[in-house]
């Protein structure tokens, strides 16, 4: 029983991080209509930027480092868009997919050139987890839950109550219609990149805090995010959030039944099953926020 509860908690923590990845990916898919393979590298970049600021010589506090990482990743995302995706605005989605695959390959290996292939860890002090009845939670994990929930709440406020947020939703709903109503599409796209990159950065830092860093960490997280996007229905922000949590839970509960080695295959299985049986997603309504 305690194993089940512990897995449930771990699944929830992992899931809340995946949710942040998935929202960004679904926003990009909703507005630009392609699967951004390089989203995984935004996640990876977030983690490594934070690492860079936390380690000597800078030695900044984790929170300041995280903030710097967000700024860095947003710049990176805007650079990607300006140099590659923007010239391809009207291209076939497969071409965009290949281009993003190329970008992903580029940055993954750039990180390996700079930081090497080995695993790295944030310089947090080693602490025993806190026992809450049958389960154990480390202080870092508690922070992860708080920060992830905070990020989601901020996102909600942004989409619901700001002009930019509303514009994003209308463009994602129907770009042509939004244009005729005077929504400036390019501006909205820039907002989408900023939001998606910030969430990827926050999620990347949290993920690295929970586990460790390595240059290829983006790919598997992209897959998890994509599975979550499909679960929620493409373009559906709240669907992606719930999808992320479902993926986190199914990975951590899945290994209670499956051999541990198949943990990383669970998200792939979800993708294939969904594509085959419910390509429109499980969570029904497009665009939860109306």
């Amino acid at each position: 029983m305690s194993l089940f509860l512990q897995s449930l908690l771990d699944g929830l923590i992992a899931g809340s991080i995946y949710a942040l990845f998935a929202v960004g990916l679904t926003l990009i898919y909703g507005t630009l209509h392609f699967i951004n393979f390089a989203h995984g590298e935004l996640i990876m970049a977030g983690a490594y930027f934070a690492y860079l600021f936390m380690m000597p010589p800078l030695h900044l506090s984790p929170f300041i480092s995280g903030g710097c990482a967000i700024v860095g990743v947003v710049c990176l995302a805007l650079l990607m868009d300006r140099s590659v995706f923007s010239p391809l605005r009207n291209a076939n989605s497969l071409l965009l997919l290949i281009a993003s695959l190329g970008i992903s390959l580029f940055f993954q290996n750039l990180a390996q050139v700079i930081w090497g292939a080995e695993i790295r860890t944030f310089p947090f002090p080693l602490e025993r987890g806190i026992s809450l009845g049958p389960v154990v939670i480390t202080p870092v994990q508690a922070w992860i839950l708080i920060i992830a929930a905070g990020a989601i709440f901020l996102l909600y406020l942004f989409l619901k109550f700001t002009r930019a947020g509303k514009a994003i939703r209308s463009v994602s709903d129907n770009p042509r219609l939004a244009k005729t109503f005077g929504v400036e599409t390019e501006r909205v796209i820039r907002f989408v990149w900023i939001v998606a990159a910030s969430l990827a950065a926050v999620g990347g830092v949290l993920y690295a805090a929970d586990t460790n860093l390595e240059p290829h960490m983006g790919t598997i997280n992209l897959v998890r995010a994509f599975a979550a996007v499909l679960l929620g229905g493409v373009g559906n922000v709240w669907g992606a959030l719930i999808g992320g949590i479902v993926i986190g839970l199914s990975e951590n509960l899945g290994v209670l039944i499956l051999p541990i080695g198949y943990k990383d295959a669970i998200a792939f299985c979800v993708i294939i099953l969904l594509l085959l049986f419910r390509p429109e997603g499980i969570l029904g309504v497009r665009w939860g926020v109306r």
């Binding site: 194993l3 512990q6 771990d10 586990t211 460790n212 860093l213 960490m217 951590n252 541990i260």
Partner: peptide, 8 residues
């Protein structure tokens, strides 16, 4: 990067 499933 994560061996907690085994450790659990």
């Amino acid at each position: 990067t994560d061996y907690r499933a085994q450790l659990l």
